[in-house]
Computed example of a mutant assay.
Amino acid sequence: MEIAVIHFIMLGVISGLTKGAGVLPDGPLNAAVGATVMFTTTLIPSDKPFLSVVWTFGSENIITFSGKNITGPEYEGRITLFMSTGSLELRNLDLNDSGQYSLSIIQAGGPGKTGSTTLNVLEPVSNVTATASSTDLVEFNSSVRLSCSSSGSSLSFLWLNGSSEVTASDRVHITDGGSTLTIVNVTHYDQGPFRCRVSNPVSVGTSDLITLSISYGPEDINLTISLSQEYYGEGSDITLSCSADSRPAALFYWFLNGDFLSDTGPELRLMNIQMSQSGNYSCQAFNDKTLRYETSQPAAVSVLERISGAFVTPTTSLTIEGIFVNLTCDAAGSVFTRKWMKDGSDLTLAGNMNLYDKNKVLSFNSLKTTDSGEYSCNTSNPLSNDEAKYTMVVICR
């Protein structure tokens, strides 16, 4: 009988209710299973008491106040009604609590107000797992599929590479609602680490990291020479070093003028080098996983014999005015240049003088007494030099 009276009162005043814009917040509200939600009204506490407060879930009564509280059996022990504002707290949520909630309030001396909002109760994200179809890949040859799974409801999936979001492209495909990431023709920049972030409006979860092992290279090969210089003296020690970006580490082979050398490894040590070892050196890097190779640009190694034992010899020791005489300048070693002097000054060729064979031969086609003097010849190369002298006395006829 008591319930009937309350319903009669509500029906008697229902025609005076106005839809209270803003009495309840715009929905939906989101909450996790097992959590608590507060339906907070926008009403300010007032001296004027509420004559009636009615909360319903769909057509089901949650709580009705009209002098006393009448709580629906499904909500016993789960709700608290705040009479100062009409707000409602609902605890221990389950999935069946999702739906529309409505409020009707009649306040003494004022118009009735109504409002409604929607509640979504969601299973929180849990057990986020990411797996890869393979983690041992070859650059440009392999493709990989990463799959993400999770418990929870209304799930959204996001893939991260390090701290950056993965976005779709010609090579990168995101499918199955975002839970599957496929990378076609991987590059070594695709190694990760990857992780899957799963979220819904009430929670977030992240998978463990997946790092891909991507074999690549060799690339960016570089050949260097210790104490690089244009020429090296015989007997010098030279080390050539070869490097390349590669996974796994590259194997290195060496070539001289295009011919294969027996030496292997990232360093080639040339000890006590001889002129016969001059030439263009190059290295080749090979990756036994990708089966690719790359060859360096050649590096020139020029070995010179140091100059020694310079000498000047005449074609005859009897230097008589009017005869033909040659002075020949030579030395042991790699002679690049020869410079002639007479009596300590640079030689000025007179009309009866000529130089031949890259200044090796100083020729007098008809000796004069003025040709007498001390002749010196300086032989040199970029690493050494030596000088020889010859004194010629021209005898008058």
Rank of each mutant, 00 (worst) to 15 (best):
F324R: 12
S102Q: 12
T295L: 04
T187C: 03
S52H: 10
F260N: 14
N354T: 10
T313R: 13
L24T: 09
I70G: 03
I323L: 11
K339C: 00
V202E: 07
A331G: 04
D47V: 14
G351C: 01
G12R: 15
R397E: 12
R292I: 07
L318M: 15
L24C: 05
S380T: 01
V303D: 02
G162L: 01
E234M: 04
T264G: 05
N352R: 11
S134T: 15
I320V: 15
R292V: 03
Q107L: 01
T206G: 00
D220Y: 03
I9N: 07
T239H: 01
I105C: 05
A299F: 07
E305W: 10
L43F: 12
C148G: 04
D245W: 04
Y232H: 08
V198C: 03
K339G: 01
E234D: 03
N365K: 11
Q297V: 10
D170H: 05
A132L: 03
T391P: 01
G12W: 14
G58C: 07
D263V: 15
V128P: 07
F82P: 08
T135M: 07
E76V: 15
T239A: 04
N280C: 00
L227C: 04
L181F: 05
I214V: 12
S133A: 02
R247S: 15
A244Y: 09
T211S: 12
L181N: 10
D357H: 06
L367M: 13
L81W: 02
G16L: 14
S296A: 02
T40S: 09
D357Q: 10
I62H: 06
S282P: 12
S143D: 06
N287K: 09
M341N: 09
E139K: 02
I395K: 15
Y390F: 06
R306P: 13
G265F: 05
T369Y: 04
G86H: 11
S98W: 00
F286Q: 09
R338S: 00
G12T: 15
N69K: 06
E321D: 14
F57Q: 10
S366W: 03
P124K: 13
K389V: 01
S52E: 11
C329Q: 06
